[in-house]
Amino acid sequence: MASVNMTEKLPGPIYVFTMPVRIWHWLHALSIGVLIVTGYLIANPLASISGEASDHFLMGNIRFVHFVSAFVFAIGLFVRVYLAIVGNKYARGLFIVPVWRGVYWKRLWHEVKFYALLTRKTGKSIGHNPLAQFAMWIFNVLVAFFMVCTGFALYSQGTGADSWADNLFGWVFVLEASSQTVRMWHLLGMWLMLFFVIIHIYMAIRADFASRQNGVSAMINGWRTFKDDGPRDPQ
């Protein structure tokens, strides 16, 4: 696509999010939710409980749920990379942001103005809008892989030296020798994910009301629908 027709019209409903991508999305979302809650409780435990230690396993269970969700999150991420390779072209949008295309930046700038409420006109997007795509890449690729690496590095402290987690992720402690600092960066990453989740959910719902296309329903049934027949880019 060397040249882009700025008056291009987009046809009706387009099947964008295939079933595996949608399943991944909701599993990913669920795991993030559980990881944020349990992660917060690991850093800031609940009020102390009394009784015999042998009668309780609260912190142990919280950590167990955190680890299980972490496996769902991490394995899901690798499955998602696979889906990007074998899936339709929209599945690659999460990982490959077309920053080398001038029209991408033009549309992104317009989207910034739209979200800043400086204009009422907005473009149509088949997958993510350019701004959303950029945010997706930052949080669901960059931050997500950061969380996987630091998370499993911290997990390797429990599994011990020469365990698989240590062999695969122990290099994190070469970059940062203090595991306490790695914990703090992992904790900060949790807050970044929460930051993303809040804005993402808001933007998805808002799209249903204030954009030219559907929002939440696209990730439920996979179809992108448009609300008007006008050209893709606002004139």
């Binding site: 435990p45 009020a47 102390s48 230690a53 042998s54 309780h56 912190m59 142990g60």
Partner: peptide, 10 residues
Amino acid sequence: PHFDAGQFVE
């Protein structure tokens, strides 16, 4: 064991 049980000195 107190850590795993969720029993902490506050």
